[in-house]
Design a protein around this nucleic acid. Structure first.
Lengths: 352, 352
DNA sequence: GCACCTTTCCAAAACGTTTTGGAAGGCCGA
DNA sequence: TCGGCCTTCCAAAACGTTTTGGAAAGGTGC
């Protein structure tokens, strides 16, 4: 004997109807539910009970209109081929959405329709009032989106940062420069003297900074700079070619660092193919600690960062930025963790 | 000499102001932009030009209120630990968001706040009018969300399906039952007779169906049913223990299938640890073709499905469901692709 | 000169909520 | 008895858009 309280397509209750049923004004019901003090204890109780009984859920759209805020935070989903397999994105979104929900906001995921411009979409999302702010996922050295959003007065928080003007917006970044500086010193201490590096072609800031950190470590030790090759991410064939090129340099570098695990893994594959033993003959290190890194042969030494945690922090920063306006602008640097595994070791004895 | 057309915090133009500037009524401007025929060609041109010049972007919230639709589709982001590393989620979201954008809708990502109920969140998302429909990400055999949403009349599309009542809602699923039936026949043809299976404890429908398909193949060949062990996904230690248990059965199975790559990879790890050569002494097969599968030692034989494509299809199905009501309900089954790699082979000669 | 179209425009209502600016009634102190 | 102060409630405006139901002006046919 189950009584069906909700039927398919049931019209949802509005404030007006709830008020009529209670024989009160809309105002009083609204204020009772919002907990204002100018409604009597007795009335508030009655209203709350009726609202529960009827399953009243306030129409957010009505609220948005009057408040002028949507309580949505927008993000552009990267859909470029090599980013589709980005092992981080899910973690990032989970952390971000969770952090936002915790603070009473929701996440709005947009994509760029074919033939449209990133910038236009980004702007429209906010100007159409579907979102109060946006999150930028991965920055280039002089990311045009940053200047654009600042100019339009759109609140945003960036994951990553530009090279200049980092005071003008909120960002959270991993200290890749510090990590690679540290890595350089470690490898030098292990006796390495000839270095090579595999870097992405696109001018992501993280790549620039990681490279700079590594090069600085070598310069400080009075060593020659690394032999750097750049390659488009996601192009497996090109990565393999570049890895082979570096491995076959004469004299061969004793350590090859990849600015991302993906690149280091290509070096590992190529080394195995050519019968060069890692780490005895060649040290390989990556950055990111992607899931495959632990499964590689040998397991890849790399750096790990807690993406979900960073994303949750970004959620907090967005809300801060929205609530305090420009006073809420802040930049944060988080330290990655060195994950030593089996792909690195002392330089081979014969090497100069 | 760059003229700054938009300043930080510039108030955005509303329809009323645009109308005032053009010396027209709000109605006319609205209808001109919407392309109605009851406004003269000349006026329409004037309005369009002014709108472009001022960069007028309609406030979607105003539209939502009058239309009663938000043009958002909601989805609950799984945040259970083992799902955080779900390699599919990013692909799925990209495909879904892309498909929705293509059809003029947007994706709204919700999470379940601590201490709240999935169902309540799901319902509230729609009843608060923040979304017109929802997408369910991964179903269990008798998923309570399905009954709940049908009862409340909330339009939704499921990725995966329940065991019963699949006529009552829209779903898209991979034919795991067919795939594992096929796999069973392949392995039998290769001479295998003793099988084991590693399955997740949670009653996901995909697990039930894959298992059923495999068992049916064995039954049809008059062979004994597989030795099945279940283990909680994401619990690495438990997975290793279960893998070891299956490997050390006496007599040892000649083939162990994992209902997910994750489980098969645990078997692979354990086999290596115990010095059992795959595929000479033991055949191992998974399902999903996760990125690590190709990197495993040996590379894992598995099944692949195009998640992004499926998600795009789901986007189409959601829109269909919204536009045609209950008449738009449909179920779709997609075939996964067998990906033979090095982890499977003929049964060892000595085995009975 | 009249009825009847067409074309082009617009005032007002509607969507569901919050907020503003009182109003009504009761109580208190003088 | 009266002014002033609480407490409790409410009517109306506001948010930005679309839609409804005309109205005004001009043309056409008889």
């Amino acid at each position: 004997m189950h009584t069906r309280t909700h039927k398919t397509g049931t019209k949802r209750l509005r404030l007006k109807e709830l008020a009529a049923h209670l024989d009160l004004s809309i105002t009083t019901v609204s204020r009772a539910l919002a907990g204002y003090s100018d409604v009597s204890e007795e009335t508030r109780r009655r209203v709350r009970e009726a609202a529960d009984a009827f399953g009243y859920v306030p129409n957010q759209v009505g609220r948005m209109l009057v408040s002028g805020r949507s309580n949505f935070v927008g993000m552009l989903l990267p859909i470029h081929p090599h980013e589709l397999v980005d092992p981080y994105l899910a973690d990032f979104l989970a952390g971000l959405a969770g952090g936002l929900t915790q603070r009473g906001r929701d996440l709005f995921l947009a994509t760029v329709p074919a033939g449209q411009d990133d910038l236009a979409v980004l702007q429209r999302v906010v100007e159409s009032r579907r979102a109060d702010a946006v999150v930028l996922y991965r920055l280039t050295c002089e990311d045009p989106r940053v200047a654009f959003l600042i100019e339009r007065g759109v609140p945003f928080v960036a994951h990553g940062r530009t090279l200049a003007g980092t005071d003008a917006y909120s960002w959270l970044d991993t200290d890749g420069e510090g990590a690679f500086h540290d890595l350089g010193r470690r490898l030098i201490a292990l006796g390495h003297r000839r270095f090579a590096m595999l870097a992405p072609t696109k001018d992501f800031t993280y790549a620039f900074l990681r490279r700079r950190g590594f090069e600085r470590a070598l310069a400080e030790a009075g060593l020659p700079q690394p032999d750097v090759l750049t390659v488009p991410l996601g192009d497996a064939a090109a990565m393999a070619r570049a890895a082979a090129q570096l491995i076959n340099r004469d004299p061969r570098p004793t350590a090859i660092v990849g600015l991302k695990d993906q690149l280091a893994l290509a070096v590992l594959d190529e080394a195995r193919r050519e019968g060069i033993s890692v780490p005895q003959a060649l040290t390989v290190v990556g950055f990111d600690d992607t899931p495959v890194a632990a499964y590689a042969d040998p397991p890849l030494t790399t750096f790990s960062q807690n993406i979900a945690e960073g994303a949750a922090m970004i959620a907090a920063m967005v809300v801060e930025r929205l609530e305090k306006g420009e006073a809420g602008i802040a930049g944060h640097l988080v330290e990655p963790r060195f994950v030593p595994r089996a792909s690195h070791g002392p330089a081979p004895a014969g090497a100069t």
